[in-house]
């Protein structure tokens, strides 16, 4: 299942990078279906980098100066829902962090 979510996420990224938003509604629907199946997919793009966020695996620049933000998301963060209050991280986001 995670492989399918990653492929859909990659497909969305690819179209967005070409400014092609024609399928946005379809992606929104697909991610809604994933959520119905208990998978919550989070795209941490532009999020401020924090070393306490263990939901991501980041590659950092050589210097930690400036405002560090996630500038590229190679794999999204995925949580899986158990019962109503119980969620757990099933995939860490793989991201690149830069000083912006």
């Amino acid at each position: 299942m995670l492989a399918i979510i990653n492929q859909v996420f990659e497909l969305e990224q690819k179209l967005q990078s070409r400014d092609d938003l024609s399928a946005e509604r379809n992606f929104k629907r697909i991610f809604h279906e994933f959520e119905e199946m208990g998978y919550r997919v989070i795209n941490p793009i532009n999020r401020k980098y924090s070393e306490t966020d263990s939901d991501i695996e980041a590659t950092l620049p050589a210097t930690l100066n400036g405002d560090l933000r996630i500038t590229r998301v190679l794999k999204p963060v995925i949580y899986q829902k158990g019962n109503i209050d119980d969620i757990s991280l099933v995939q860490k986001g793989i991201v690149i962090v830069e000083a912006v």
């Binding site: 306490t52 966020d53 263990s54 939901d55 949580y79 757990s88």
Partner: peptide, 9 residues
């Protein structure tokens, strides 16, 4: 955090 997404160290 119990879901595994936060760790202060």
């Amino acid at each position: 955090r119990s879901d595994g997404g936060f760790d202060s160290g």
